[in-house]
Amino acid sequence: NISFYQQKNQGKSVAMNKGINECKTKLFTCVDSDDYLVNEAVNSILDTWMHCHPYSIGILCLREVSKVPNAMKTNDFYTTLRDAYCKYGLHGDTMLVFRSDIIKRFQFPSFDGEKFVPEDYLYDKIDKEGKLKFLNKVLYKGQYLEDGYTAEMAKLIKNNPQGYHAFICQRLSYDDTLKQRILDTIRHIAINKVLESKGLKYQVIYPWLYALLYPLGYIFYCKRYKHL
């Protein structure tokens, strides 16, 4: 049975909150309006889930553009989403299938006048709950729209700075290497400059690192956001 719900357009993150809250099945996934699943996707997911370890929080599948590192090509591989990219070297987009009882514990924040929060805000939280079973199959294909999120990400972030600020502050609190903290602090400085230009409040996570990297963060802000 398929249920349909309608609400005022408040962006994808609020729509996902609605879908998560209304989900009545054991597994949850999100398919964008410009994407689609291959014919065998549902059967592959259900069959994989039957053989997952009890501690698994879901399944990590592939999109057609993904490049899989050899380390992830074993038959019974489990990983967090962030480790898949940062530790093992996965490239490209993925499809995420979560246990509904896990994802229902979390929500995207919402901000007046904004319609975008990076999806990794939610996925970073879920990473703390356990690991995903990796399914080395392409089950999800995309047909990006010219006005989609991917086409003009910098403009999207500048127009929704509070949502991105919430994400990058959380990401900094989760970073466990100096390299990650440096890169995210540069992004943090840049989005703080965007907030400052709009008269909005912002915060500093690592003051000493923030001061040290401020010139780089300001350059990043000028190159990516200032001219938009």
Score class of each variant (00 low, 15 high):
residue 2 I to M: 09
residue 6 Q to E: 15
residue 8 K to F: 11
residue 10 Q to R: 14
residue 14 V to H: 13
residue 15 A to S: 05
residue 19 G to I: 01
residue 21 N to H: 07
residue 24 K to I: 02
residue 24 K to W: 03
residue 25 T to Q: 05
residue 25 T to I: 01
residue 27 L to I: 11
residue 33 S to M: 06
residue 35 D to T: 06
residue 36 Y to I: 06
residue 38 V to W: 02
residue 39 N to V: 10
residue 40 E to T: 08
residue 42 V to S: 04
residue 42 V to F: 12
residue 44 S to C: 12
residue 45 I to T: 04
residue 45 I to P: 08
residue 49 W to S: 14
residue 51 H to W: 02
residue 54 P to V: 13
residue 54 P to G: 13
residue 54 P to F: 12
residue 57 I to R: 03
residue 58 G to Y: 05
residue 65 V to I: 00
residue 67 K to F: 15
residue 67 K to R: 15
residue 68 V to T: 05
residue 68 V to H: 02
residue 69 P to D: 02
residue 69 P to V: 05
residue 71 A to V: 15
residue 71 A to Y: 07
residue 72 M to E: 08
residue 73 K to M: 13
residue 73 K to Q: 10
residue 74 T to W: 09
residue 77 F to Q: 03
residue 77 F to D: 02
residue 81 L to K: 10
residue 82 R to H: 13
residue 83 D to E: 10
residue 83 D to T: 07
residue 84 A to W: 08
residue 84 A to D: 03
residue 84 A to S: 15
residue 84 A to E: 04
residue 85 Y to E: 14
residue 88 Y to D: 08
residue 89 G to Q: 04
residue 89 G to T: 02
residue 92 G to T: 10
residue 93 D to F: 09
residue 93 D to A: 13
residue 93 D to K: 09
residue 93 D to P: 09
residue 95 M to Y: 13
residue 97 V to G: 11
residue 99 R to F: 10
residue 99 R to H: 12
residue 99 R to D: 11
residue 101 D to T: 12
residue 103 I to M: 06
residue 104 K to N: 04
residue 106 F to L: 09
residue 109 P to T: 00
residue 111 F to P: 06
residue 113 G to Y: 00
residue 114 E to D: 06
residue 117 V to A: 03
residue 117 V to D: 05
residue 119 E to G: 08
residue 121 Y to K: 09
residue 121 Y to E: 04
residue 123 Y to L: 10
residue 125 K to I: 05
residue 126 I to N: 03
residue 129 E to T: 14
residue 130 G to V: 03
residue 131 K to T: 15
residue 132 L to T: 10
residue 135 L to C: 00
residue 139 L to D: 09
residue 140 Y to C: 05
residue 142 G to Y: 05
residue 146 E to W: 11
residue 148 G to H: 03
residue 150 T to P: 01
residue 151 A to N: 07
residue 153 M to V: 07
residue 153 M to W: 01
residue 154 A to I: 03
residue 156 L to I: 07
residue 157 I to W: 12
residue 163 G to C: 00
residue 165 H to D: 15
residue 165 H to F: 15
residue 169 C to Q: 15
residue 169 C to D: 11
residue 172 L to F: 02
residue 174 Y to C: 13
residue 178 L to N: 00
residue 180 Q to K: 14
residue 182 I to G: 02
residue 184 D to A: 01
residue 184 D to W: 00
residue 187 R to F: 05
residue 188 H to I: 02
residue 189 I to R: 00
residue 189 I to N: 00
residue 191 I to P: 14
residue 191 I to H: 11
residue 194 V to W: 00
residue 196 E to V: 06
residue 199 G to R: 02
residue 201 K to L: 02
residue 202 Y to S: 13
residue 203 Q to W: 03
residue 204 V to M: 00
residue 209 L to A: 12
residue 210 Y to L: 03
residue 212 L to P: 07
residue 212 L to Y: 10
residue 215 P to D: 01
residue 218 Y to K: 01
residue 219 I to S: 00
residue 220 F to L: 02
residue 222 C to G: 12
residue 222 C to V: 15
residue 224 R to M: 07
residue 227 H to C: 10
residue 227 H to E: 13
residue 228 L to T: 05
